[in-house]
Simulated assay, not measured.
Amino acid sequence: MPQFTGFPLTGLDFYEDLEADNSKAFWTAHKQVWETSVRDPMQALMSELEPDFGPAKMFRPYRDVRFSKDKTPYKNHQGAVVHTSPGAGFYVQIGAAGLFIAVGLYGPTPAQLAQLRTAIDNEVRGVELENLLAGLTAAGYTLGGDRLVTRPKGYPADHPRIELLRHKSLTLSKDFGAPAWLEKPRAAVEIRKAWEELRPAAEWIAAVTG
């Protein structure tokens, strides 16, 4: 595997152009740019981070349009995930806007969602999560995920962690944009640093849903 040297800005330009012309003709004419500026650097990055976080899965660049009203054939970003439990893990993405990093529980099964809410309800586990989230949001990460409009069944409206209990998925993320280090080897250092900061949250999620 070639050494990771950064994400070339030509990759970001590729996705900006793809957003303007998401067609097979454009993709075919510019596929080599995607391969050299997006795919190959992402593979090299994942290989470099594997000893610390585990093997990664790169997502396909093609959209599944079978059940979508949006029939554009290609994704406007390239993502990769290191799973810590089914439906959960570390995530990194490159697109027109630059670098995006996250951890979380993205598509829980009903059983996992029940496990998550049981842990949030617990006075020890729930407070532990609250403290983790407080520290990470103070460090600049954004708490996200799909949420119920109302409270989940079985939990009182005045529960001290009702806002967390409303979550149907749970993520922590940060948009880094396109800093000068993105196209340099330092990008691997910064991504590793972010994932390490997020590791306690990833481990908490894996422990209660894995």
Rank of each mutant, 00 (worst) to 15 (best):
H159C: 03
H159A: 05
H159S: 05
H159W: 06
H159R: 01
P160W: 12
P160T: 12
P160Y: 13
R161D: 09
E163K: 10
E163L: 00
L164M: 07
L164T: 03
L164K: 02
L164G: 08
H167G: 04
H167I: 06
K168F: 03
K168W: 06
K168S: 01
K168A: 04
S169V: 08
S169L: 08
L170F: 15
L170A: 12
T171G: 02
T171V: 14
T171K: 06
T171A: 07
T171F: 05
L172D: 09
L172V: 13
L172E: 08
S173I: 03
S173W: 00
F176I: 01
F176L: 11
G177N: 11
G177C: 07
G177V: 12
A178T: 14
A178L: 02
A178K: 12
A178E: 04
P179Q: 08
P179D: 13
P179E: 09
P179W: 06
A180M: 07
A180W: 00
W181D: 04
L182E: 04
L182T: 03
E183R: 03
E183T: 12
E183P: 05
E183S: 15
K184L: 12
K184G: 00
P185L: 06
P185G: 06
P185Y: 07
R186A: 15
R186F: 07
R186I: 09
R186E: 15
A187N: 04
A187E: 08
A187V: 06
A188I: 02
V189N: 12
E190N: 08
I191Q: 04
I191C: 09
I191R: 01
R192K: 15
R192N: 13
